[in-house]
Each structure stands twice: as structure tokens, then as C-alpha cells.
């Protein structure tokens, strides 16, 4: 029973972890030389949801993450919903056709997805503000952002893997739990 509660608490706890990460992200990168190292933790979380969650659950979590991003930014209404959902659907689509057997494969994908997300954000915002003003900013932060997000994804994915295992969200942990419940039902 305790394990089922843990499994149920996986998503709310993960959202709390993301909120905490966003709080750090918005506070410690104040100095101008640190701004290039500012990662997008929500993007990493969205990629994780696309890879490790079912379609409906992952999509809903992505929408919640987009909501968190929107209220911590002056971004135009809906831009985060559109861009993060596009990332989620793209990664989900890719994961149906390609296998990411190792962590480093997923990390490489985060690098590309980071560039993809920035291009999407540029496309959306340029319909509201001058394209020239925005592309300079995007270009400036494109590579540092991708590298930092790739590096953070390496640890982030390891953490979330462990977190999923502890909260019985991981398929193997879930299978072990089901086997155990089955054995209990059988009277062992």
C-alpha cells in the first residue's frame, strides 16, 4: 500500500522538485557572466516526460510545466504552452521510432532539442516583436544554452531515474511491485 502511495505521489513530488529547480534557476544566475550558464530545467523535464511517461500523463505534466514557466517569465501568453508541447510531441514521436538505449543518447537529444526549442521560441516571439531584435539574442545564447542543458540533463536524468525507481514509477520497479503484490495475493 505504501508503495502504491509513493507511486501516486510521483507526479506531485516531481512538480515540487521542478518548482524548486525553477526557483534556483531564477535566482542564482544574476551576474551577467553567469547568464550564459542558465539552463532551462523545464525543457529537460519535458524531454524526460516524453521519454518516460505515457502520452496522456506526459502531456498533462508538460502543460503544468509550461504553466510554471509562464508565471515565472514575461513571455507572451501561450508561447511556453506551444513550444513545450511541440517539444513533447516531437520527442514522443522520435521515441516511437528511435531507441535511446543509454543515458548519453538522451543527453545528445537534449542538446538538439534545446536548439529546436530556441528556434521555436524565436518563431513564436518574432510574430509579436521584431525578428532582428530577437534572433541576435537567440543566437547569442543558442550554443551555451544547449551545452549547459545537455550537461544538466546528464545529472537530471540520473536523478529522475532514481526518483522514478524510488517512487515505483520505473517500469522495472513497477513490475517488481506487481510481482510482489501477486505473490501476496497467492498467499506467499
Amino acid at each position: 500500500m505504501t508503495r502504491l502511495i509513493w507511486k501516486f505521489l510521483n507526479a506531485p513530488l516531481l512538480i515540487l522538485v521542478i518548482l524548486f529547480a525553477v526557483s534556483i534557476q531564477t535566482t542564482i544566475f544574476f551576474p551577467p557572466y553567469l547568464i550564459y550558464l542558465k539552463p532551462d530545467v523545464i525543457l529537460i523535464a519535458v524531454v524526460w516526460f516524453a521519454l518516460k511517461r505515457e502520452f496522456l500523463e506526459g502531456g498533462v505534466l508538460t502543460l503544468i510545466c509550461a504553466e510554471i514557466a509562464e508565471i515565472h517569465s514575461s513571455g507572451i501568453q501561450g508561447v511556453f504552452f506551444a513550444t513545450y508541447m511541440a517539444v513533447f510531441l516531437t520527442v514522443k514521436g522520435f521515441s516511437n521510432y528511435f531507441v535511446f538505449p543509454k543515458l548519453k543518447n538522451a543527453v545528445v537529444m537534449v542538446l538538439f532539442i534545446s536548439v529546436f526549442w530556441k528556434a521555436l521560441a524565436l518563431a513564436f516571439t518574432s510574430s509579436f516583436v521584431d525578428f532582428y531584435r530577437q534572433w541576435r539574442q537567440t543566437l547569442e545564447f543558442l550554443l551555451p544554452g544547449a551545452i549547459v542543458e545537455g550537461a544538466l540533463a546528464y545529472w537530471g536524468f540520473q536523478f529522475m531515474e532514481k526518483f522514478d525507481w524510488k517512487t515505483y514509477k520505473n517500469p522495472q520497479a513497477l513490475r517488481a511491485l506487481e510481482d510482489e503484490l501477486h505473490l501476496e495475493e497467492e498467499g506467499f
Binding site: 502531456g59 502543460l63 517569465s73 507572451i76 501568453q77 501561450g78 506551444a82 508541447m85 511541440a86 516583436v129
Partner: peptide, 18 residues
């Protein structure tokens, strides 16, 4: 619905955050 919701969320009438 996953495609519809972001489309509905985008406010094309204003440049301001919500």
C-alpha cells in the same frame, strides 16, 4: 486537445504577459 490547448492559450490580440 494537446494541440488545441496551446493554440487557445496564445493571445494574439496583445503582446503582454497574462
Amino acid at each position: 486537445f494537446f494541440i488545441l490547448l496551446p493554440v487557445l492559450a496564445i493571445d494574439t490580440s496583445t503582446r503582454s504577459p497574462r
